[in-house]
């Protein structure tokens, strides 16, 4: 017996998806680039991915018995679908070749499907990795979870030729949910159930995680809001300090004592 802790990373995964949804209200502009009336918010794609991932895990054995290599076959199917769509559009469409392809409803439907798959893939992989306790799938999930906001940022910057503002507090919460997902996945991977044998180790790791994340959050928050904390003096009136570079420099400066402490400790440990 023991306490199953598998639900905890699910909470953080859902929290992260929620934060991304709040962080990028113009996500719908991104999906509108694929299809004008595609008005599914990111949280919708994320929930869908999470549910499908859990269902797939539950029925994976039966699915694999019926269909060998289902993921490979799905990929092949998508490629064939695109090929068929292009051929049909070219054969039956109107106008010149370029117009036939660009205006094709079939091809647009394919793009919408691909967009849906890419948007729901991170949470699909995330939920599957928690249930299957698979580090390989987890790594892909993290990559996907970072690519979603990356895509939004690149798209929006290219569109508006400017950098949209990101609220520091919401950014902090989003970062902490991702960190929480990573750490709690590792708890599940290492312990799965918490009982008397691992209870002490788990408690210690939990305390350490909270402590270090707390310090990290304070450092990150100070880096973003240091301006309001110190009086304006001529010596720090460089414009770079108000940009992301300045914030990064402050963050690194705040981290440097910890870095040097780690180096000093490792040298002392090495003797």
């Amino acid at each position: 017996m023991g306490l199953r802790i598998r639900f905890i990373p699910f909470v953080f995964l859902g929290g992260y998806a929620l934060c991304i949804w709040l962080m990028f209200p113009s996500f719908l502009e991104v999906s509108a680039g694929i299809y004008r009336d595609l008005s599914v918010p990111y949280i919708g794609w994320a929930l869908m991915g999470g549910v499908i991932g859990s269902v797939y895990y539950r029925y994976r054995e039966g699915l694999r018995k019926r269909i060998k290599n289902p993921i490979n076959k799905l990929g092949l199917g998508l490629v064939l679908w695109l090929g068929a769509s292009i051929l049909i559009s070219v054969a039956l469409g109107e106008g010149d070749l370029q117009d036939r392809v660009l205006d094709s409803g079939l091809i647009r439907a394919w793009f919408v499907t691909m967009f849906g798959i890419f948007m729901s893939a991170p949470t699909f992989l995330g939920s599957y990795s928690i249930l299957a306790r698979s580090k390989e799938v987890f790594s892909l999930a993290i990559l996907g979870l970072i690519i979603v906001p990356l895509t939004c940022m690149i798209y929006l910057q290219a569109q508006s030729v400017s950098v949209p503002r990101q609220d520091p507090l919401l950014s902090l919460i989003t970062a902490l949910t991702l960190f929480g997902f990573v750490e709690t996945f590792h708890w599940v991977y290492k312990y799965d159930r918490i009982d008397v044998q691992v209870g002490n180790l788990f408690a210690r790791q939990l305390i350490s995680t909270i402590l270090f994340a707390g310090v990290g959050s304070v450092i990150a928050f100070i880096a973003f809001s240091w301006r309001s904390m110190i009086p304006d003096i001529a010596a720090v009136s460089f414009y770079e300090m108000d940009t992301i570079f300045g914030t990064a420099a402050i963050g690194l400066a705040l981290l440097s004592p910890i870095a040097l402490l780690a180096i000093v400790r490792s040298f002392r440990e090495g003797k």
Binding site: L150, M153, I154, V163, A220, F224, T243, I244
Partner: peptide
């Protein structure tokens, strides 16, 4: 990308 989120 001048992203506060990623820097955080």
């Amino acid at each position: 990308l001048s992203s506060g989120l990623f820097l955080m």
